[in-house]
Amino acid sequence: MTVQDTTILRPIPRFRGVDHKTLILIPPGIMLLVFFLCPFLIMGAVSFYYRVPDGFYEPDFVLANYAAFFDPVFLTALARSLTLCAVISVVCVSLAMPFTYLVSRMRRGIQVPIVILLLCILTLSEVILGFSWTILLSRTAGVSNVLVWLGILDRPVSYYPSRIAIMIAMLHFCFPFAVLTIYPPISRFDRSLPEAAATLGAGPIRAFFTVVIPALRGTIISALVLVFVFALGAYLFPQMLGRPADWTLSVLITDQAIYKSNIPFAAAMSVFLCLICFALIVGVGKLTKKSEG
């Protein structure tokens, strides 16, 4: 081996016209195929299997699992899930945008602890957050006792199960994700733009809404989609903090898969949920392109 061989980087050879950039995509491509596409295809196949009433399933091609989904119980749960997640993603990103913008303008010594705090929330599991909120919102130990002490309430009350309780816990859970998605583009954001707005007479709030927000439209939309999809998978919060009338489709899917062993039906509902998610993401993507064009 000569010295030259080890010290001089030779250009990566091209294989039959494929350049190295494409080659780099192969490992993640295989990962996606093995860990995402294959399970999804298996789920898709199982959703057409025949459900044997005694708790098993057999390979077959039946549409009964999809037909069963068109029952008001499940359609309502679907509508409820989509509405809940849409509201959560809008509220979450609306809070995260100004928060991140303000944090990004702070001194580095303050920024870092705030980001670490947010990362700390991410280390807590859904179970721990759920149990914490059941205590905070409870009648016996929750915040209402403070309100009684302050003389605002006559006697302590329980704030869960309720839709608001689910929303609060889900916001707590999703907020760090929204901030961490928005943080890099906002910290790279060209400061001269709001400064130019200021020289033209716009106050900080007006500059934020008329200059910063429109310039970061792409970031906002990706944060919205990310939080929406993330919230759609939440299972524990609706289950722990809501009544059956608040249970999302994820809860019903889990019930079917785990407690009823109805894997084909659970798969059919999951496929449906995935398709709706996919359609929404594609739709939002198209709308953004149109508005940008």
């Binding site: 009433p53 005694d54 069963a68 119980v73 059956p244 009338a245 019903l252 019930d255």
Partner: peptide
Amino acid sequence: YTDWGDWTATEFSRAIS
């Protein structure tokens, strides 16, 4: 919960939600 299991599960969900 056996022969009528799936039917009962759906109707029960309907009743309590």
